[in-house]
């Protein structure tokens, strides 16, 4: 057992343990922080495997993502300190779905690659990753970037109702207001 093996096992244990805490913890914000630990441990795994670039990208991207998640957790709730059981859901279906999928995938991987030996690939330096992405995988890369761009534009359009035509909801509201005005006017007429 080499140092790399030990590190892999330890980081894997940290990642899995923190992930377990993410889903079991009743502390809302803390479970987000456990997610940081879990994703950080995964970045460590990449590092041990020699994929430096992927490891740092993992930290750069996912830490930011988790911060956004934490912000939602803080802003959509009362940002409680301590456990908040009222925000919990029954665990059984989640355990069934999540555990089943995880175990099934693990069994599948173990079964498929158990007896196969692969030579260790070269370390995933920035140069190699760049060559691969912009060489062999350039089409999927570009398609993905277009997908992300359209998602971005869509998010902006959805979050700004002042772009584009009047939405049906606003039109309905206008009609409702008009009817109300009419009713009020009629009432006034009767009184007079």
């Amino acid at each position: 057992m080499t140092v790399a093996d030990v590190l892999l096992l330890a980081l894997g244990a940290v990642a899995v343990g923190a992930g377990f805490l993410v889903v079991t913890s009743a502390h809302l914000v803390r479970s987000g922080l456990y997610l940081v630990v879990s994703l950080g441990a995964i970045a460590g795994l990449y590092l041990v495997l020699g994929a430096e670039l992927v490891a740092w990208v993992q930290i750069l991207v996912y830490v930011g993502a988790v911060v956004v998640l934490l912000l939602f957790a803080v802003m959509l709730t009362r940002a409680p300190i301590g456990p908040s059981p009222d925000l919990d859901r029954p665990a059984v279906p989640a355990v069934l779905v999540g555990g089943g999928a995880g175990l099934g995938l693990a069994a599948l991987f173990a079964d498929a690659f158990r007896w196969v030996r692969y030579p260790a690939p070269e370390p995933g330096t920035a140069e190699r990753v760049g060559e691969q992405i912009f060489g062999a995988w350039v089409l999927p890369f570009e398609v993905l970037s277009i997908l992300l761009l359209s998602a971005l534009v869509g998010a902006i359009v959805l979050s700004r109702p002042d772009i584009g035509a009047r939405t049906p909801a606003v039109a309905e509201e206008h009609e409702a207001v008009a009817e109300q005005n009419k009713a009020v006017a009629e009432e006034h007429g009767q009184e007079v």
Binding site: L33, V36, E52, L53, W56, V57, I59, L60, V63, G64, V66, V67, L70, T125, A126
Partner: peptide, 17 residues
Amino acid sequence: LDIGLFLVLAVLGIGVV
């Protein structure tokens, strides 16, 4: 480091947490 710039930017981002 081969990709020190990336490390620096990634690690600086942890400050938000």
